[in-house]
Simulated assay, not measured.
Amino acid sequence: MELTENNVKALLAKLPLLKNEIQKVIVGQDHILDELLVAFLAGGHCLLEGVPGLAKTLIVKTMSQALHLSFRRIQFTPDLMPTDIVGTEILEEDHATGKRFFKFNKGPLFANIILADEINRTPPKTQSALLEAMQEFEVTYGGQTYPLDRPFFILATQNPIEQAGTYPLPEAQLDRFLLLVQIGYPTEQEELAILNQTTGTKKATVTPVISGEEILQAQQLVRQVTISEELVAYVSGIIRATRPDTTTNNYVKEWVRWGAGPRAGQALILTAKARALLKGRYAVLKEDIQAMATPVLRHRILMNFKAEAEGITADKVTGELIRG
């Protein structure tokens, strides 16, 4: 469908309504919602990191209700197999002819929004099946390729504290996630509001405001947002400055083992474009790039042992580069 000026305006008017609907259920977490919506509009996937009980599941379920999209939750466990998420073939019989045949029975991966809960609890083989779907937007079983529903958005969660019996995602697989969103504890006022809102009889109703087709149009529109050559060079400068072997930044040389690759630059430009659109603009500003730099880079910069011992994080490195 061709985007005309009128339906672009109508689409942009719906984006704030989407956040309002989610906030009927979710108290606070304003920047978390912004980052998730940015990732969704940019057509990427999110890794959400936070301790249990911070409404990670509720956020993504509420988002799927406001978007009028199908939602599936997959609880990752050590015994989960690739076929448990992708699907498997079952033997069926044609009653008219008596012939038997195999039919592919689709797994929970065939939905618009997938919550991959505690992704680091499952072995690499199952993680790889999920990451293949993220990258290719299709799954292959028995030599046959099955396209996934679009839009397709994976929100994977991991607990940053309890690491016993887990299979941490390798850096190459972490890089497939557009953003690493860290969710923290609510403020005192937010926690009081949560306690009042969730322990009574009143239940908020979420109304769908955007269809799947409109989200696909919005994702198309994100790529049409303009960015100046000067800002593209600014993004390139930030990414190149994260690499200790080529940077002139002494802070990076001291604390960083490996810097970000070219995919980080692509992610930073796309998310900056999506943020601009969420703010009602058709052009990227420097503030969009600076706002998205931390969630884009925090899982793509590998700190050295000295930094880990001193408590120097990738977020601190990103902050130094933005200020510089």
Score class of each variant (00 low, 15 high):
244 P>N: 02
202 K>H: 14
250 N>M: 13
269 I>V: 09
215 I>D: 00
275 R>F: 11
253 K>M: 06
268 L>W: 04
206 V>S: 00
230 E>D: 06
263 R>W: 08
244 P>S: 02
261 G>R: 11
263 R>S: 09
209 V>A: 00
250 N>L: 15
279 K>G: 13
276 A>R: 05
231 L>T: 04
259 G>M: 03
258 W>Y: 15
238 I>V: 07
240 R>E: 12
209 V>G: 00
276 A>W: 09
239 I>P: 05
229 E>H: 12
264 A>F: 14
207 T>E: 02
230 E>G: 06
220 Q>K: 14
260 A>S: 13
274 A>T: 09
233 A>D: 14
250 N>K: 14
207 T>G: 03
274 A>F: 06
217 Q>A: 08
251 Y>W: 12
268 L>Q: 04
273 K>W: 03
271 T>N: 00
242 T>N: 08
259 G>H: 00
277 L>V: 08
233 A>W: 07
226 T>I: 10
276 A>C: 12
229 E>Q: 07
267 A>I: 03
245 D>M: 13
204 A>E: 13
205 T>M: 04
213 E>C: 00
277 L>H: 10
219 Q>L: 10
231 L>C: 13
254 E>I: 13
274 A>G: 11
227 I>Q: 02
222 V>P: 11
204 A>L: 05
220 Q>H: 14
266 Q>C: 06
249 N>F: 12
239 I>F: 04
258 W>I: 05
252 V>P: 08
245 D>Y: 09
239 I>M: 02
219 Q>R: 05
229 E>I: 14
211 S>P: 05
218 A>P: 15
259 G>F: 03
233 A>G: 10
221 L>Y: 10
213 E>V: 11
212 G>N: 03
233 A>P: 13
205 T>L: 11
222 V>W: 03
256 V>Q: 08
263 R>M: 09
262 P>F: 01
270 L>D: 07
272 A>T: 04
234 Y>R: 08
212 G>T: 04
276 A>N: 03
239 I>D: 02
219 Q>D: 01
238 I>D: 01
216 L>T: 10
245 D>H: 14
263 R>Y: 12
223 R>N: 09
262 P>T: 01
259 G>R: 03
226 T>Q: 08
262 P>E: 00
227 I>C: 06
203 K>C: 10
242 T>Q: 03
217 Q>H: 15
265 G>N: 02
